[in-house]
Amino acid sequence: MRLIREFEEHCLEKALAGTIVGGIHPYIGQEAVAVGVSACLRADDVITSTHRGHGHVLAKGADPARALAELYGASTGLNRGRGGSMHAADVSLGIYGANGIVGAGAPIAVGAAWAARRAGRDDRVAVAFFGDGALSQGVVLEAFNMAALWSLPVLFVCENNGYATSLPVDRGLAGDPVTRAAGFGLTAEAVDGMDVEAVAEAAGRAVDACRAGAGPHFLECATYRFHGHHTVEHLMGTKYRDDDEVAGAWSRDPLTRQRDRLTPEAAAEVDTEIAVLIAEAEAFASSSPGSDPGDALDYLYAGLVPARPGA
């Protein structure tokens, strides 16, 4: 969690400074979800992620230096500089990508689980992370249906941070997520997404059950994002949450909560370790060569057909 928090704080600074071109969707506040779930996963499990994906990607094991390099558009990045924030991926680590389209990763996780089933490896679980807004996307419901129909080892993780961009969840979602998921035959439960140990415990149960062939599961994690939907929000002057509400949420900071469970020495050790990792990541990313516009036509196809440069 500390790694994600510090990585995101670093990215906020670099996005505002223009080192990261364009905006990012910071994961700050939601760290307990990615970390709690990923703590239950193995290297051969896979995840699909969201536009707010840095936390998932790091928690699943991506190299922070290559992740930062990706955000800097460097050729050493996870996607060799072409994916950026919203498409960071590392298929070799089972990270099937952050995704700019809300809900789009859900069926991809189902397909990955289906592949595991075909290989006789139900013990390999696929996790689809998505937000509360994605529950309004048809393709997520298609994915629920297919996963349940074929009893696939999929864990759907709904990070309910209370807002679909600016729309409060009670203005955008009929019914409640757990009941909806249960209606598809998913084993569903809700958990405090601001408590990493609670998330890990619930996810552990779900992942173990998936591995044992009990079919798909659904976990609603109640959480909160402490920053805006994206980093450009403050420039746009958009405001849809009370200052009191945001300040109150900080009192539930999952990092503070977990820190209180550690000895001061252990916490300080984590801080030191993470500071080194971030410094190393920055040194790597900032010294990496940028992407070359001259190769823009490359890799359009796997087959040997050149792209057209346009008129």
Binding site: V46, V91, Y96, A104, A106, P107, I108, A109, V110, G111, A112, A113, W114, A115, A116, R118, A119, A126, G138, V139, E142, A143, N145, M146, L149
Partner: peptide, 20 residues
């Protein structure tokens, strides 16, 4: 498959990423 074209293509992506 069920009548779910978006789900069909989405699951095909997951299958393809795992070698199918």
């Amino acid at each position: 498959t069920p009548l779910a074209e978006s789900g069909i293509i989405g699951t095909a992506i997951g299958l393809a990423l795992r070698g199918y």
